[in-house]
Amino acid sequence: MTNLSGKMKAVVCYGPEDYRVEEVPVPKIGKEEVLIKVEACGVCGSDVKAYYGSDMYWAGEDPWLKAPVIPGHEFYGVVVELGEGAAEKFELKVGDRVTADQINPCGKCRFCQTGKYWMCEVHNIYGFQKDVAEGAMAEYMKFSSTSKIHKITDGVTPEEASLIEPMGCAIHTVQRANIEFEDVVVMAGAGTLGLCMIQLIALKTPKKLIVLDVNEKRLEMAKKFGADICINPKEEDAVKKVKELTDGYGCDVYIEATGSPIGVTQGLEMVRKLGRFIEFSVFGKETTTDWSVIGDRKELDIRGSHLSPYTYPIAIDLFERKLVTAEGIVTHSYKLEDFVEAFQKAQMPDAIKVLLKP
């Protein structure tokens, strides 16, 4: 066991636009807990929304985000210390490369007790709740005894390892879509998650995969990853084009990963009657639509997709077998001290996945 003590460098969130790089104590681990040295932490769209004060994180007298807290829920690292019983429980040793599900489940609620840990009623997500779920924008990070920890195999590159969390989320979303060979699938949004989903949808070999995005660089990547047709809604009428490609019926499956309200209303218009609409995005503001489209007009299957239950091993295996890639998706890396620049870059058209590397 490595006896680590003293201080470490970390980004600490105190409130909207009040994030600071500080020297904080290295986490102390207890029974069945694991300490890792963080190798990389991705900047998620939700991190950026939290930084700029989105109501979904900060609203009310008891906001969901519990500050002060170290942010960061897309991570991987190397085991440096194992608490009593952790080596046996998680089958780990010092030096192993690992990651963990972004949720730190309570293990006690009805969802955890029935295997549905990703919907844990307590719902502590690493990087959003102080003390119980400190994140990975730091030199070291602690996994709890209830964490879902996964070893990363040798064939997975560092870039791929940093993309396991988004790929896991993408896998769950595509699983929720139940894509069939004869389906025309529309993937709305070709950011990090969309580009991961495109690779996975292509492995499902649907009849046609159509990708929508307003960023031409991302559409080029979508084509490379398996899209049959790419549409820029700023340049042409996406609904009209999809209808034309489907004899006027609309697509069979629509996956929403734009994070923009127009992604919802556009999708409800272009999906066919009895189609499947999969909602993944986290929205920064309220989205409204005519709900009669869902029931009275089209009888749609509306399915949400949350987190990445049981998908990390699948993501690791797909990377290991080179069936999916991080190439071109991870675009920028920054030091912890430059986190503000990293958050700003994450919103720029030339960036896709931005990493912090302690």
Rank of each mutant, 00 (worst) to 15 (best):
T192V: 00
L193P: 01
C196T: 00
C196M: 08
M197Y: 01
I198N: 00
I198V: 13
I198L: 00
Q199P: 02
I201M: 05
K204G: 04
P206R: 11
P206F: 08
P206T: 11
K207I: 10
K208A: 14
L209S: 10
V211P: 03
N215E: 10
N215A: 09
E216Q: 14
K217L: 12
R218I: 02
R218G: 06
L219N: 03
L219I: 03
L219P: 01
M221N: 04
A222C: 03
K223N: 10
F225K: 00
I229K: 08
I229L: 14
E235C: 11
D237W: 07
D237T: 07
A238D: 11
A238Q: 04
K241Y: 05
K243T: 09
K243D: 06
K243Q: 13
E244M: 12
L245V: 10
L245I: 10
D247C: 14
G248E: 11
G248L: 11
G248Q: 04
G248C: 11
Y249G: 05
G250K: 06
Y254I: 02
I255K: 01
E256M: 06
T258C: 03
T258I: 04
T258Y: 00
G259W: 02
P261L: 04
I262M: 13
G263I: 06
V264C: 06
T265V: 14
G267N: 02
G267L: 03
L268A: 04
E269N: 13
F277D: 02
E279A: 12
E279T: 06
F280E: 05
F283I: 05
F283D: 02
E286K: 15
T289A: 15
D290T: 14
W291H: 14
